[in-house]
Amino acid sequence: MGHERALTWYEELFGSPPTYVVSETEALWEVAEHGAVFVERRPERATGHPMHVLFVGDLDERAAAISARGIEPAASETYDNGVRKFLYRDPEGNEIGIGGLPA
């Protein structure tokens, strides 16, 4: 996936353009107080398929907003302790989970 395509996907996921465009190859979204997601174009690592998880207090609202922007979770899980997680995959297969406690 090209860097511009990745930025577009993450803009749709987070519902806004990057908070900071660091350079032509780097962008950052502040997604919570003291929490950010950094996207960097690094072709030498493009096949790494990392997995990240954000834990939020407003899981249902965020998931609904993401769906309204046209991105649906690839999977969802509910753990024995009631924590839920939605798993999203970008077009390259990189995973970002968004989890939280039940509402």
Rank of each mutant, 00 (worst) to 15 (best):
Pro18Val: 08
Pro17Met: 08
Ala75Trp: 04
Arg89Met: 06
Ser67Lys: 14
His52Arg: 13
Asn81Ala: 07
Leu87Met: 12
Leu7Glu: 07
Leu7Phe: 02
His49Asn: 09
Gly2Val: 11
Gly93Gln: 05
Ser76Ile: 07
Phe55Cys: 00
Lys85Ile: 14
Arg84Ser: 04
Gly57Arg: 05
Ser16Phe: 08
Glu40Thr: 14
Glu44Ile: 11
Thr78Ile: 13
Glu24Tyr: 03
Gly82Trp: 03
Val37Trp: 00
Glu95Phe: 10
Ala68Thr: 05
Gly2Ala: 10
Thr47His: 12
Leu59Cys: 02
Glu30Asn: 03
Glu11Trp: 01
Arg69His: 02
Gly99Leu: 03
Val53Gln: 05
Arg69Tyr: 08
Leu54Cys: 02
Val21Arg: 15
Gly100Tyr: 01
Val56Cys: 01
Arg69Gln: 03
Gly82Tyr: 02
Ser76Phe: 11
Ala68Asn: 07
Thr47Ala: 15
Glu44Arg: 12
Gly70Leu: 10
Glu24Phe: 09
Tyr88Asn: 06
Ala46Arg: 08
Gly97Val: 04
Ala68Cys: 04
Leu59Tyr: 00
Glu33Tyr: 13
Arg5Trp: 05
His34Ser: 12
Ala63Ile: 15
Asp80Gln: 10
Asn81Gln: 01
Pro43His: 05
Thr8His: 06
Val39Phe: 02
Gly97Asn: 04
Phe86Tyr: 13
Ala27Met: 09
Glu72Gln: 15
Ile71Tyr: 04
Ser76Thr: 13
Ile98Cys: 02
Ala27Tyr: 06
Gly99Asn: 07
Asn81Ser: 09
Glu11Thr: 14
Tyr10Ser: 01
Leu59Gly: 00
Ile71Phe: 08
Val22Ile: 14
Glu72Trp: 15
Val56Ser: 00
Ala74Met: 10
Gly2Pro: 15
Ile98Val: 11
Val83Asn: 03
Asp80Ile: 07
Val22His: 03
Arg89His: 06
Asp80Pro: 00
Pro17Asp: 13
Leu101Tyr: 11
Leu54Ala: 03
Trp9Leu: 04
Gly2His: 12
Ala74Asp: 10
Ala46Met: 08
Pro50Trp: 11
Phe55Asp: 00
Ala103Ile: 05
Ala27Ile: 11
Thr25Val: 06
Arg42Glu: 12
Thr47Lys: 10
Leu87Ala: 07
Glu12Asn: 12
Glu95Cys: 10
Met51Trp: 09
Tyr88Ile: 11
Ile66Leu: 02
Ile66Tyr: 01
Leu13Tyr: 03
Pro43Trp: 06
Glu40Arg: 14
Ala27Phe: 08
Leu28Pro: 00
Tyr88Val: 10
Arg42Met: 12
His3Leu: 15
Asp80Ala: 15
Thr19Ser: 13
Arg84Gly: 03
Phe38Thr: 13
Ala103Leu: 10
Gly70Lys: 09
Arg41Leu: 14
Arg42His: 12
Val31Lys: 01
Glu95Asn: 12
Ala68Val: 05
Pro50Thr: 08
Glu92Arg: 05
Asn94Arg: 09
Ile71Met: 07
His34Pro: 06
Thr78Gln: 08
Leu28Lys: 09
Asn81Trp: 08
Pro18Gly: 05
Glu44Tyr: 11
Lys85Arg: 11
Glu33Phe: 13
Pro43Gln: 04
Val56Tyr: 02
Thr25His: 11
Asp60His: 09
Pro18Arg: 06
Phe38Lys: 13
Glu4Ser: 14
Glu77Trp: 13
Ala46Asp: 08
Tyr88Lys: 05
Val31Phe: 01
Thr47Arg: 10
Glu92Tyr: 03
Ala32Asn: 04
